[in-house]
Design a protein around this nucleic acid. Structure first.
Length: 426
RNA sequence: GCGUUGUUGGUGAAGUGGUUAACACGGUGGAUUGUGGUUCCAUUAUUUCGUGGGUUCGAUUCCCACACAGCGCCCCA
């Protein structure tokens, strides 16, 4: 039995309805921000991610899908969305146009991970990136978008955690301070932390094993190493968030796994039991040097990404159903084969007039057709038999009230418009 | 990458070392061949119980490996 690759899943049925509606909702939300839709390649040159996301990050060092194409090019399935958007921004010289530019995307990402609930190897992210503003207003705006999205969805149990990594200088000073501080305690830390000490000392603070450790509590704080500019920036972000009425916590252990962040970083967590370590619904931050690093001019950026699978899991946990259920306005069937052409032509006309029309293709019995009409939840049923064809009077039945009407063929659109219009007004 | 639990039909699942793999839902067809949604009847896994090996006279049932899924860790959305 052939089966789908590990960590992938099919989208159909109810799940498809959820995805479609979510996309619709995001489109509408993004329009409100005047953000532009981007679709970039699902694979890019491997180098883009190595440079953009960071060679030493776990994502790039052990989670990417790398392959060579037939032309011997090194390619990588995108593990996140930002690098591709940044590449597109540079390659198409969008920096030469009116900035800031607000961009959004929604599509599949790929990481070679051990699958769990809300964690897949092919997963979907909705992301947003704003290029061209150093101002803390943009940081706050970005966090605000995530909050608005969750608000619109009706998701209640979420908390916003923010932190700052400062600018390059602050971050480097802090890194040194951490290295100095932890050096004598290395033997007291867990294995992972000793590894982090070498690779990314900021992540030691994020450790769950050692979090209650005295050593951790007395560790140097990022806030003490921020230079003037970085501190002012972070204060502004908080001020603006307050102004928008956004509840947040400053959490100094948030450092993020991608190398490109500077200043503001944030995570939005689901406060739902049983989410384990997959409780981060959205995350993002500022990346003032990424564009430059990937090969463009010095243009700042801020962005975030939301994982759809986790978000949908959270919606489920709160019993929020965002499926948009679409039912046929009309179900048409014929009494016999002779009337099939009439079924097709009538259904065509009705569809062009804007109705959702389902028809019987298989020449089922009356009984089966009525059952079928119920199953698809059709509002009206049209029966076409010999009598109807001869008299050009259609038999139309309201499937809720069971009322039956005789409607002239050339008046059917008017009739349905009126009837279905009435119901919509209710 | 490490640990752990599981894998029976379209779905939820019961079950046993041996010639009917229970039950429920769903699907299909039918119960006066132009009027239904309740009810009733029939049918719906059978070269089959994730895949491949092994033990056995015989395995879906025992053993091993692999695949996949779930959960925890790491990490992350």
């Amino acid at each position: 039995m052939l089966q789908k690759p590990k960590g992938t899943y099919d989208i159909y049925g109810d799940k498809a309805l959820t995805y479609l509606y979510f996309r619709k909702l995001v489109e509408a939300l993004m329009d409100k921000y005047n953000a532009k839709y981007f679709e970039t390649p699902i694979f890019e040159s491997s180098e883009l991610f190595h440079r953009g996301v960071g060679e030493t990050t776990d994502i790039v060092s052990k989670e990417t899908y790398d392959f060579k194409d037939r032309g011997d090019r090194d390619l990588t399935l995108r593990p996140e969305g930002t690098a591709g958007i940044v590449r597109c921004f540079i390659e198409n010289k969008l920096y030469a146009e009116n900035l800031p530019l607000k961009a959004w995307y929604l599509g599949p990402m790929f990481r070679y991970e051990r699958p769990q609930a809300g964690r897949y190897r092919e997963f979907y992210q909705f992301g947003f990136e704003a290029f061209g503003s150093f101002d803390a207003m943009m940081d706050a705006e970005v966090i605000g978008i995530v909050c608005n999205l969750f608000k619109i969805l009706g998701l209640k149990g979420v908390s916003v955690n923010i932190n700052t990594l400062g600018d390059k200088e602050s971050r480097e000073n802090y890194r040194k301070a951490l290295l100095d501080y932890f050096k004598p305690y290395l033997n007291d830390l867990c294995d992972d932390c000793r590894r982090r000490y070498e690779k990314n000392p900021l992540r030691i603070l994020d450790c769950k094993v050692d979090s209650s450790n005295e050593i951790m509590k007395n560790a140097p704080k990022m806030t003490d190493y921020l230079n003037e500019e970085s501190r002012i920036h972070f204060d502004k972000v908080k001020e603006y968030l307050d102004a928008m009425g956004i509840n947040y916590k400053v959490n100094s252990s948030i450092v993020r796994g991608l190398d490109y962040y500077t200043h503001t970083v944030f995570e939005v967590q689901a406060d739902i039991e049983g989410f384990g370590s997959q409780n981060t619904l959205a995350a993002g931050g500022r990346y003032d040097h990424l564009v430059e690093f990937v090969g463009g001019p010095s243009v700042p950026g801020v962005g975030f990404a939301v994982g759809l699978e986790r978000l949908f899991l959270a919606l489920d946990a709160e019993n929020i159903d965002i499926r948009e259920i679409i039912c046929p306005d009309v179900y048409i069937f014929s009494a016999g084969d002779e009337q099939k052409p009439y079924v097709l032509s009538l259904s065509n006309d009705l569809r062009l007039a804007g109705f959702n029309v389902e028809i019987d293709y298989n020449g089922k019995s009356f009984k089966s057709n009525f059952k079928q009409a119920d199953k698809v939840n059709a509002r009206y049923i049209i029966i076409i038999g010999e009598e109807e064809v001869e008299s050009k009077l259609l038999t139309v039945k309201n499937n809720e009230t069971k009322e039956e009407y005789k409607v002239k063929l050339d008046k059917i659109i008017e009739f349905l418009d009126e009837k279905l219009g009435e119901e919509h007004e209710d």
